[in-house]
């Protein structure tokens, strides 16, 4: 009986993860299409910071955890967005000036995003709503 319950819970969790994966993939792909077809390049770049993961995650979180929980996530998202601004600005300046390989450089720079985001979380968002 307990084993059957565990199995059912496992299937439910896996199902939720699969839905998250599909919804996230669809939202990100849809915004990426806009970034592909729009010109000039600097305008298309706006879609590189589209709220695709935010929309997908918040919609699912509201459905499963409720609005108060999702609002708390959105509050911290402010810190993530500030970290994204630092990330993108550094990528722009350093790519122009030193022309490092885009793939390696923009991937390594994700550590900068993480450092800035966690610092902001520690000082401003740790306490909750």
């Amino acid at each position: 009986m307990a084993a059957q319950g565990n199995l059912r819970e496992g299937v439910r969790v896996l199902g939720q993860l699969l839905i998250r994966f599909l919804v996230g993939g669809l939202f990100v792909s849809a915004f990426a299409v806009f970034g592909t077809v729009l010109k000039p390049r600097s305008f298309a770049g706006l879609f590189g910071a589209a709220p695709s993961v935010g929309l997908a995650t918040l919609a699912l979180t509201i459905a499963t955890e409720g609005k108060a929980y999702a609002a708390m996530e959105a509050r911290s998202m402010l810190g993530g967005a500030a970290a994204f601004l630092v990330y993108a600005w550094c990528a722009m300046v350093l790519l122009y000036r030193y022309k490092p390989p885009a793939k390696i450089f923009t991937s390594l720079l994700l550590f900068l995003w993480l450092a800035v985001a966690l610092t902001l979380w520690f000082y401003f968002f740790k306490a909750g709503v």
Binding site: P40, R41, S42, F43, A44, G45, L46, F47, G48, A49, A50, A81, A82, F84, L85, Y87, A88, W89, A91, M92, L95, T106
Partner: peptide, 10 residues
């Protein structure tokens, strides 16, 4: 240039 757009998007 893409990064500049992303900065505004952020």
């Amino acid at each position: 240039l893409e990064a500049r757009g992303a900065a505004f998007g952020a």
